[in-house]
């Protein structure tokens, strides 16, 4: 055995991991709706990043004699808003902010939610009681009120809105993770790890965490959409991003005063939110199926 050691080509480490990712990718590709959702989402992100290359207008340049031009007139594909700014340009730039806010808020909420859920569920007892009572208190507030209270404390603004939404999201992830952990920690494969001499952190992060990922990733993907809506909602209420920022929620809010005479000013940002959230939901559903090894054909 030892003599053949040098002849056998040693498989590079991480091969197993890469095959798993490829396998996930292969299964995701089969789901037409998820693929469509992914493509739309990717397109929106690219349009946001490449915004300066795609348009010659500046999103903040007010041109007072070109206010509220209907779509297709005066060289403005989607028309202009009440300040004479090119709507398409503002939508491109808005994609950066709105989509980013959704992802960052979910990432923050996920991080803390997962940590709280893992430790509360795994250790139980006092750790659980302390963490989960805190979570209960957070959940007792209607989420809009909670977000408003947080913004009242931090002051209005895009960043504050993002933090507020993230905090609102933490309890949901903590709950999902804790529930899954409670059932996982009684599983015999966890006991087998203990019998092998594995420490708690190894068990938590290597064996329990990956088994909570499927429900979490699905919930998170679906929630990016929810958080985009929530951030836009806060902006709409004047608590998030502030005018003249090119953010979809702000644009929706500004346009509502002109709904009768220039509906496009509100309709297009609303449509953008709708499309992005829909594609996120399709992608989330596809991911859920692809992540479940039992659904493998």
């Amino acid at each position: 055995m030892s003599s053949t050691g040098s002849e056998i080509a040693v498989k590079p480490q991480g091969t197993a991991q890469r095959t798993k990712t490829r396998e996930l990718w292969r299964r995701l590709k089969k789901d037409k709706f998820a693929v469509a959702g992914g493509i739309v989402l990717l397109t929106v992100i690219i349009l946001g990043i490449a915004a300066p290359l795609l348009t010659s207008y500046n999103p903040y340049d007010a041109v007072l004699d070109q206010r509220l031009l209907p779509p297709g007139t005066g060289g403005h594909l989607l028309g202009t808003d009440q300040m004479g700014r090119d709507l398409l340009t503002r939508l491109f730039y808005g994609a950066r902010i709105s989509v980013m806010v959704g992802f960052v808020a979910v990432a923050i909420a996920l991080f803390f939610g997962i940590i709280v859920g893992l430790f509360a569920g795994y250790y139980g007892g006092l750790v659980d009681t302390i963490f989960m009572r805190g979570i209960d208190i957070l959940m007792a507030f209607p989420y809009v009120l909670l977000a408003i209270a947080i913004i009242a404390a931090l002051g209005p603004g895009l960043f504050q809105a993002m933090i507020a939404i993230a905090i609102v999201g933490i309890p949901y992830y903590a709950r999902i993770v804790r529930g899954t952990v409670l059932s996982l920690r009684e599983k015999e494969f966890v006991e087998a790890e203990k019998a092998l001499g594995a420490g708690n952190l190894r068990i938590i992060f290597k064996h329990i965490l990956p088994n909570t990922m499927a429900p979490i990733i699905v919930a998170a993907t679906l929630d990016v959409g929810w958080m985009i809506i929530a951030a836009a909602g806060l902006s709409f209420l004047g608590l998030g991003a502030q005018p003249p920022t090119a953010e979809w929620g702000v644009m929706l809010s500004e346009g509502r005063n002109f709904l009768r005479v220039a509906p496009w000013v509100s309709i297009f940002p609303g449509l953008c939110i709708f499309i992005v959230v829909l594609s996120l939901n399709l992608l989330g559903d596809g991911l859920r199926d692809a992540l479940d090894p039992r659904l493998k054909e």
Partner: peptide, 24 residues
Amino acid sequence: MRQLRRDMQIIFQDPYASLNPRLT
């Protein structure tokens, strides 16, 4: 105790619950 665990092991009743479904 960790060292001693090398000497004593367990085989479980439920072959479905005793293997981590996410590991090869």
